[in-house]
Design a protein around this nucleic acid. Structure first.
Lengths: 259, 259
DNA sequence: CGCTCATTTGACAGAAATCAAAAGCGGTGG
DNA sequence: CCACCGCTTTTGATTTCTGTCAAATGAGCG
């Protein structure tokens, strides 16, 4: 790596971004990428920080580089519904809107590659190939959101829990576990607390906890600590989702868990 | 109307379309509109017809001109979940995908303005202003889908029913009812059958029916015929939704009931 | 009229929310 | 190091809701 080039701040930054080949930036031409490098900057947020509040000016957009962002919708009763989770490489923020209809909150410590919304809109107007990528990305997210909505409205709680865990198990940031056995098992890391997961799945922490314990009793999961489970029997987990594996994988592949 | 011009088939057709000022076509320049007139044609589908089946080649896109289209997702168990409803002026089909992840089915007799998917993709590439409109439209739909998903996952059945009815009551095609009283009441027209509404709301026809009858007993609704109710007490209906009125109205404003 | 299909109503069982309390975990300060 | 506190998670008991099964009613139609 050429440190001099990096210090100039206008070249190469994006090429070294760990997610640039998966985010919408992948569509950017070399020149566009240089311009992006100038316009964008990474920002860190501590767990729990509200990055954009519901109703606020939606003046930041960008990509999640690391960590998990919660998308939430506050209802009148003061109850916060989790509308989606954003993982690394997911696009973040709401282009072309004055205010945000949702809150964006750091569910873990988060690194974002951010730029001003209006700067982004100008950039996109100059680079149709990126606008096109954003369109494709948004269409995929819409499909995923609809599929998730279908999931939640017609399935039992256990099916939703199993689906959620399966999707989490497919994410790349899971370490393997060599517990002396021949086959390495995936470690499922729950990125957020039980309360939030329950809200996301449309249930209560109590019911979620019971379902998780049922999975442990069935030897499908093995608890490591509160937020980590070893996935012992993936195929039985898929059984419990009541969906076809391909459908689940397509949900993962394009929608990356966003609802 | 100039019939001669209409018969030429290449001019003016779209200008007379009842939804062209609300659909994404509104962004099209005069030339683009002419090209659209050439490329598109209206098609009628009887109630119940499957227009595009899940997994099929998604080779038709367009706009709903009249009627209601059901977006459905068949789960492994054979159960069909309703993922969204498309009303006049809503965009229809899935651009940039080989196959459709959902089925599109005529919920009522339907008129579509359709064109081939690839023709549409080519058209859009030549007319960036339309691509941009499609992007804006898709972003709005995504917000609406997420909001609907949040709705369905955290509310009781009655809250979902009340929300659905409230949104319907906001639709412009509702006539007023002067029943001798001073205040005219809105007539809520259920565009589709109970079975479909129930699937959309993630419940069963039986439970839906019970909830509707409860609303009638509470004097919030008054039945006119099977598919029409007079909304007697709108504010109590809003109470039952548990949402803020503004939120509901924004949902109507942009999302038009799509999930 | 008799047919079919959609909707409503009833009875019941099962699932999940609620209420309540115990256990686990991570801090802080003595 | 330990005790204390606040928090999250788990477990238990109970009630409420909703899905299921079944039957009655009503609407549209030849």
């Amino acid at each position: 790596m050429n440190e001099t080039v990096m210090k100039l701040g206008s070249c190469g930054k994006c090429e070294q971004c760990p997610v640039h080949h998966r985010s919408i930036c992948r569509a950017a031409s070399a020149e566009a990428m240089q311009e992006l490098s100038r316009l964008s900057h990474t920002r860190n947020f501590e767990k729990g920080t509200v990055i954009v509040a519901q109703g606020d000016e939606a003046d930041i957009v960008g990509n999640v580089v690391s960590g998990v962002v919660k998308l939430t919708n506050m209802s009148m009763s003061g109850q916060q519904n989790i509308v989606g989770l954003l993982f690394p490489s997911d696009f973040f923020g709401r282009a072309y809107a004055e205010t945000s209809r949702f809150s964006y909150e750091a569910a873990t410590d988060v690194t974002l590659c951010s730029l001003g919304r209006q700067a982004f809109e100008g950039f996109i107007a100059r680079h149709p190939e990126v606008e096109h990528a954003l369109l494709l990305n948004t269409l995929d997210e819409l499909d995923a959101a609809r599929e998730w909505a279908a999931m939640t409205s017609c399935h039992t709680t256990m099916q939703r829990v199993a689906t959620f865990l399966f999707i989490l198990s497919q994410r790349s940031d899971n370490r393997f576990c060599h517990s002396g056995d021949k086959i390495p098992h995936v470690i499922i890391a729950l990125p957020i607390g039980r309360r939030d997961i329950a809200a996301y799945l449309g249930t209560t922490p109590e019911t979620l906890s019971r379902n998780l314990q049922t999975l442990v009793r069935k030897q499908i999961l093995r608890p490591i600590d509160t937020n980590h489970f070893e996935l012992v029997n993936a195929s039985e987990l898929v059984e419990l989702t009541g969906e076809m594996r391909e459908d689940l994988e397509s949900m993962y592949g394009t929608g990356k868990l966003k609802a």
